[in-house]
Write a protein that binds this DNA or RNA. Structure first.
Length: 271
DNA sequence: ATCCCCACCTGGCCGC
DNA sequence: TGCGGCCAGGTGGGGA
């Protein structure tokens, strides 16, 4: 489900409701997510939510009790955070309930590829410390980062941009859409991109991510924000999941790159 | 150091 | 209707 825009929309939908609110109680329904839901999570009880941010595809909630600590959430493929009224009964795939005074926040995850962990430090956290630059910050859109970081990299451009340790937040769909819009073949070696191509691709990625956030993200099958609202950016897809090219009507090709599917138009996106 | 591939898990869809 | 096979927004780890 969730690439950068979807995660940002979840953050946007919970931010105002839980900031400065106190967590009353934690209820754990199961343990075996990608990272087990540990007993440390009970430290959340009686702490106060200070701040919520997105970093790559991670949701980071800063909590205040004696000293600050962090709740780190990754949604995997099917994770969601959902507001529920008090005393609703547990639904299938609910794993964790964070109870506030007037509502509950539920972590639900069908495939259990996500996780919810606690850490005292962000910069030492094994997941967060590995993340690359955020494409919505650091002037990523000027293309210089992509150009400079890729000069010696003999990897397909699509695979390179999916590497979260280089750029954090881009996922399979948005990279495909960006390559289609810039008429770049996903198999081009990233070191072969010209500076102008790096500029175009970077700008296009940022444009797509920001447009998607404005539309509430993309809802394929089951994505929803914490208020149960679906996004509509999936209606803007030009290549992902398509049979024919929306520009030239050629048959869209579907290939695998590093085990992930890639859709592209062999005519518009010639190598 | 890099790169590729697989496993992790559940459910939906397609074809027989 | 049922069952097998394949696919899905992600990622860490192990082997080459």
């Amino acid at each position: 489900m969730p690439e950068l825009p979807e995660v940002q929309c979840v953050v946007n939908s919970i931010k105002d409701k839980i900031e400065n609110k106190k967590i009353k109680k934690i209820v754990r329904f199961s343990k075996n997510l990608r990272e087990p839901l540990s007993n440390d999570l009970f430290k959340l009880e009686n702490s106060t939510v200070k701040k919520i941010i997105r970093r790559g595809k991670y949701i980071i909630i800063t909590l205040e009790s004696n000293k600050d600590f962090y709740l780190i959430v990754h949604l995997g493929m099917t994770g969601s955070l959902l507001f529920k009224e008090k005393n609703q009964k547990k639904e299938k795939h609910d794993h964790l309930k964070i109870e506030f005074e007037n509502f509950d926040l539920i972590y639900n995850d069908i495939r259990k590829f996500g996780f919810v962990i606690i850490d005292d430090s962000l910069k030492d956290n094994k997941y967060i410390k590995k993340l690359g630059v955020d494409p919505l910050k650091n002037s990523f859109e000027n293309g210089e980062f992509l150009f400079k970081s890729s000069r010696d990299k003999n990897r397909d451009v699509k695979v390179f941009l999916l590497d979260q340790s280089i750029v954090a937040g881009i996922g399979n769909i948005y990279i495909m859409e960006a390559l289609f819009l810039t008429k770049l073949n996903p198999k081009i070696k990233v070191k072969d991109l010209t500076f102008i191509e790096c500029v175009n691709l970077s700008k296009t990625l940022v444009f797509l991510l920001e447009e998607s956030i404005k539309l509430g993200g993309s809802s394929i099958s089951d994505y929803k924000d914490a208020d149960n609202k679906k996004g509509s950016f999936q209606d803007k897809f030009l290549i992902y999941g398509k049979k024919t090219c929306s520009i030239c009507l050629s048959e869209v090709e579907k290939i695998k790159q590093n085990g992930r599917s890639t859709y592209f138009c062999p005519v518009c996106q010639k190598l």
